[in-house]
Design a protein around this nucleic acid. Structure first.
Length: 98
DNA sequence: CCCCTGACAGGCG
DNA sequence: ACGCCTGCCAGGG
């Protein structure tokens, strides 16, 4: 295992931190930009590594955060100017390109 | 070492 | 549009 290096984790955190206010990115985008083969790894990093990262700017490809965080996410994003339509973020509008 | 779980994604019915 | 299944990688029991 350990197919993932600390550098990869650093990259992921850097990418998440680089997401400007008012923008969002999907797990898949980050995984791809970080050179990871699976978007799930990104989720794993976010879950384990509770850093000062703006994790709320990371959403799923469906535009809907995980159920347990959805409420919090939407609220935080809302305060940043990212509005959700029917509990779903409009990726086409806020998706950040790396 | 096997099995389950998990901040996911894409395909299929 | 929604739910289920499969592929993916890593960690914990």
């Amino acid at each position: 295992m350990a197919a993932i290096t600390d550098e990869q984790v650093e990259t992921v955190r850097a990418l998440v931190a680089s997401i400007p206010t008012g923008a969002v990115a999907t797990y898949g985008d980050i995984a791809d930009a970080a050179g990871l083969s699976s978007a799930r790894i990104v989720g794993w990093i976010m879950r384990t590594d509770s850093s000062d990262l703006p994790w709320h700017r990371v959403i799923t490809a469906s535009g809907k955060p995980a159920p347990h965080l959805a409420t919090r996410q939407l609220e935080l994003l809302r305060s940043e100017g990212v509005l959700a339509a029917d509990g779903r973020i409009v990726l086409r509008e806020y998706r950040h390109s790396f």
